[in-house]
Computed example of a mutant assay.
Amino acid sequence: MSAAAAEVAVNQYFDRYFDRQATKILPGEYYATKEPEVIVTVLGSCVAACIRDKVSGIGGMNHFLLPLDGSAEPGKPTQSARYGAYAMELLINEVIKLGGRRERLEAKVFGGAAVLRGMLLNDVGKRNAEFVEQYLRNEHIPIAAADLLLDFPRKVYFFPETGQVWVKRIKTIKNDTIFEREREYRQRVKQDVESGSVDLFEE
């Protein structure tokens, strides 16, 4: 997995509305904290998993998109699934490194909308939503809340300390920033897959 496809978020600022430190997650990024912060992202076809130790309040968020992948073979994970699993493990491992306990983790998942123009026939958002739900079931991490699919972007605010999530559904889009970020991100991920840099979890 190249650095272009999965990075720790560095866009931090002080949110005056919530009166606390905030970290903004862009496509391909993740962030976890044990401080009373808010983590923010805007989702179109991508999905975000908010993972939290429900006892300690240590938690974080990722923001990822499965690349389109025609390499599926019966009984074998695709490169796309390997990428998604890697994106999830990055976040889970970071939460555990900060002191979270895997057996106490819970998840809230968002995104997967049908909004990435030119890719609607491929059900990109649906594939992302199905992947994150299946991954969490396989890992026995309960999903405490979800807001997936439909046809509009979302802005998500996650407060790991309390587990609270605010979701704003964006019904009116003023510019193409969301689409351009996801389109550029998808191209980076596609290049990673084609180069073999996400050939992970071989059995």
Rank of each mutant, 00 (worst) to 15 (best):
R104G: 00
A81Y: 08
E89K: 14
A85T: 13
L98K: 11
E94M: 05
R101A: 04
L90H: 03
S71L: 06
A87K: 13
K108S: 15
M88Q: 13
E73A: 12
K108V: 03
P77Y: 10
I96E: 04
E94V: 02
P74I: 08
N93I: 00
R102V: 07
L90Q: 09
L90R: 13
Q79R: 12
G100C: 04
G75P: 14
L98S: 03
Q79K: 12
L105A: 04
R104E: 09
I92L: 08
T78H: 05
E73W: 06
R102K: 14
A81I: 12
Q79Y: 14
G99E: 02
A107T: 07
E103K: 10
A85C: 06
K76R: 15
P77V: 11
G75R: 02
R101Q: 11
G100D: 04
V95Y: 02
G84S: 08
A81F: 07
L90K: 14
T78K: 09
G75M: 05
K108D: 05
N93F: 01
G100L: 02
Y86H: 12
I96H: 01
E103N: 09
G100Y: 02
G99C: 06
P74E: 12
E89H: 14
P74W: 10
R101V: 03
E94R: 15
E103M: 05
K108Y: 04
G70F: 07
G99V: 08
A85M: 11
L98Q: 10
R102M: 05
V95L: 04
K108Q: 15
G70L: 07
L105C: 01
T78A: 10
P77C: 09
G75E: 11
A72I: 09
L105W: 02
E73V: 12
S71G: 15
Y86D: 05
R82G: 04
R82S: 10
E94P: 00
S80M: 11
G70Y: 08
N93R: 13
G100I: 01
L90G: 01
K108R: 14
G99H: 03
G70I: 02
E106T: 10
N93C: 06
R101N: 08
K108E: 13
E106F: 01
G99R: 04
T78D: 06
I96V: 15
E94H: 14
M88D: 03
G84D: 08
L105M: 11
K97S: 14
A85Y: 07
I96M: 03
I96D: 00
Q79F: 15
P77H: 08
V95E: 01
L91F: 10
P77L: 11
M88H: 13
E89T: 11
K97R: 15
K108M: 14
A107K: 03
Y83F: 15
K76Y: 15
R102Q: 11
S71C: 02
A87N: 05
A87D: 05
A72T: 04
A87V: 04
P77M: 09
A87Y: 04
A85P: 00
K108G: 09
K76P: 06
G84M: 10
E103T: 06
R82W: 03
Y83S: 02
